[in-house]
């Protein structure tokens, strides 16, 4: 168990609670539809159209969260553009960083 300024974390208690919840879920699942036939009812039915190949049904990585990236376009376009991959640019960021930190330290504490 670990204690924070306003609470505690005990993983053992959490694990016991999770096991109990899983047991309850398993019990409910066991009481499910008895007439279910494996391999028949799990087959995809596409309105009578031919079944798609495995490659066609798999959602590829670039399609996932498309809406999220569209919504945050104004953030993503300049952020990605800043990642030029050019080493000179990386070093310019370093020099700018050094200048900013020196100014902050001098302003805060005097020269």
């Amino acid at each position: 168990m670990i204690e924070s300024p306003s609470g505690f974390w005990g993983p053992v208690v959490w694990i016991i609670a999770a096991i109990v919840a899983l047991l309850i879920a398993y019990f409910i699942q066991r009481r499910g539809e008895k007439a279910y036939k494996k391999g028949v009812q799990s087959e995809t039915f596409l309105m009578g159209n031919p079944k798609l190949s495995a490659g066609e049904t798999h959602v590829r990585a670039h399609n996932i969260y498309w809406g999220f990236f569209e919504g945050l376009k104004k953030y993503y376009i300049p952020t990605i553009a800043a990642h030029t991959g050019i080493i000179n640019d990386h070093l310019i960021w370093l020099i700018a960083g050094i200048a900013i930190v020196i100014i902050i330290l001098f302003i805060a504490g005097g020269i």
Binding site: S53, A54, G55, T57, V59, A61
Partner: peptide, 14 residues
Amino acid sequence: TKAFQSAFTGPQLP
């Protein structure tokens, strides 16, 4: 979750 779905789940690719 995105990486998990993309790499591990889904139908077995030929």
